[in-house]
């Protein structure tokens, strides 16, 4: 009997403390700086183009094959504004397949892909989680704005990127 009362004492003590729960849809807890949300593509604000050159190393290393990409000749390179000879043309990620493992970020040579803080996935459309280049860049810009992200290797990408 005494031990049951002891247990009751714990609950009584807890009653006087502040609640630790957060009412989720109304209240969002802040995510940590390193939080790995869905992958997003970063935007080079100096040249006004994505960092991604479409080299597809992330696609080859993805455990779930959730991404596809193609590349094209960079028009800005012809004009002499950019050092990137090739640039990403189509980039599509099926976020429903993504397992948030950060392998794509690790293998990227151009700091072109980041794990954004985006994590809410519910969509009304069946295919609503297939995001294209435009949406990925928007997510990336948001992430860069929120966290003040800077590329690790600030140097320009190497000339003559292999396709």
């Amino acid at each position: 009997m005494l031990n049951s009362l002891k247990g009751l004492g714990v609950t009584l003590k807890t009653m006087l403390r502040k609640p630790v729960t957060a009412q989720y849809p109304k209240e969002h807890l802040p995510v940590n700086r390193r939080y790995m949300g869905f992958p997003a593509l970063t935007w080079d604000f100096q040249v006004q183009e994505p960092y991604c050159v479409g080299c597809m190393v992330c696609i080859r290393n993805c455990p779930t094959q959730c991404m596809t990409a193609t590349l094209k000749d960079n028009p800005l390179h012809k004009e002499g504004k950019s050092t990137r000879r090739k640039i990403v043309d189509i980039f599509e990620v099926n976020l429903g397949r993504c397992i948030l493992c950060e392998i794509c970020v690790e293998v990227c040579n151009f700091d072109a892909i980041v794990m954004s803080h985006e994590h809410e996935l519910s969509k009304y459309e069946r295919n609503g989680n297939r995001v294209d280049l435009q949406a990925l860049l928007e997510m990336g810009k948001q992430y860069q704005e929120d966290t003040g992200w800077e590329p690790e290797q600030a140097a320009a990408p190497k000339e003559g990127v292999q396709a």
């Binding site: 995510v31 940590n32 700086r33 390193r34 939080y35 790995m36 948030l100 493992c101 392998i103 794990m115």
Partner: peptide
């Protein structure tokens, strides 16, 4: 929950961390 928030701060994920690598860790602790 408190432990998982530490995990999130260190590895970036609460459950599926993918944090250990062959030969060490993906990144240092914050």
């Amino acid at each position: 929950e408190r432990i998982q928030s530490i995990f999130e701060a260190v590895s970036g994920a609460r459950l599926m961390h993918n944090y250990f690598r062959v030969g060490g860790l993906r990144q240092d602790v914050p």
